[in-house]
């Protein structure tokens, strides 16, 4: 890592410090508005009753789960093409967030399934695709955690993420195909009949709030990761200073 590369994360950190208060404020405001609209503005569905309010968590979570993967894929291109350390940090910070949103989408979908179809889990095309996505997120997190060298871990993860992003449409298509084969009736209606604006507006506000929260958490996780890398670099420096003839210096250059 050269001086130039290290300067970038430093500038990035000062930028984060500057915009973080505004971001927190905007997130809190959007979440409050979204929650208010979800409970007091949106009407109940004449069929689904109060459970329609689950949608205001379920759909934004699902949306963020996909957005987060797109974000990781973009960062992976940054890692492989421009070899930018900040892209590595971004991809690593996004993985647990994506897993969290995917979990939330699965959990809310499962809870929604219970009053709707009387069972906690249906092998519905959408839920199944998200289960696969969840496993992919956990695999990526596991790969990050098992590799010590941050640069090699970043590249391996970038390749895996990009292979995943190419495969996601194929998985989605095959799961849809498999689903129509086994149960012709489609279940989630979010893309069925056009949503009335009294539902759509709160949904969009909630989606915006979730996105703001994601950006906020992503910046916080990135900041933590940059700190971790600095600590690692400083410890290695300390180790090489303690025993000047050891070839630890060779390792530091890699970092």
């Amino acid at each position: 890592m050269t001086l130039y590369d290290l300067a970038n994360p430093t500038r990035f950190l000062s930028l984060v410090e500057r915009i973080m208060p505004w971001l927190i404020g905007a997130t809190v405001l959007a979440l409050a508005t979204g929650l208010y609209m979800a409970f007091f503005y949106a009407p109940e569905d004449y069929q689904q009753g109060v459970t329609v309010r689950i949608m205001f968590v379920h759909v934004p979570s699902a949306w963020l789960a996909l957005l987060c993967y797109a974000m990781m894929a973009g960062s992976s291109i940054g890692t492989l093409v421009w070899k930018h350390p900040l892209a590595d940090v971004s991809a690593k910070a996004a993985a647990p967030l994506g897993a969290a949103f995917t979990f939330l989408a699965l959990f809310s979908g499962s809870i929604w399934a219970k009053p709707m179809w009387g069972t906690w889990w249906v092998w519905d095309a959408r839920l199944t695709s998200f289960l696969v996505l969840f496993i992919m997120y956990l695999g990526i997190i596991a790969l990050w955690r098992t590799m010590d060298d941050p640069i090699k871990a970043a590249k391996a993860n970038a390749i895996l993420t990009l292979v995943g992003v190419i495969n996601l449409p194929i998985i989605k298509f095959s799961v849809d195909w498999w689903n129509t084969l086994h149960q012709p009736a489609s279940v989630f209606r979010t893309d069925g009949p056009a949503l009335h604006s009294s539902i759509l507006v709160p949904l969009l506000v909630m989606a915006g709030a979730f996105t703001l929260f994601f950006i906020m958490m992503h910046l916080m996780f990135m900041r933590n990761e940059i700190y971790a890398r600095r600590i690692r670099a400083m410890r290695m420096r300390a180790a090489s200073a303690a025993q000047p003839h050891a070839n630890v210096t060779a390792q530091i250059r890699e970092v």
Binding site: V57, P96, A100, W112, M217, M220
Partner: peptide, 30 residues
């Protein structure tokens, strides 16, 4: 079915709060 809605929103609060707590605790440590 209010308990289902409550469960979803409570889980959302737990997940968001968990992420936030982890981020802040780790930041403090580092």
């Amino acid at each position: 079915h209010a308990e289902y809605v409550a469960a979803v929103y409570l889980m959302a609060v737990a997940v968001f709060g968990g992420l936030l707590t982890v981020a802040l605790v780790v930041k403090k440590q580092r």
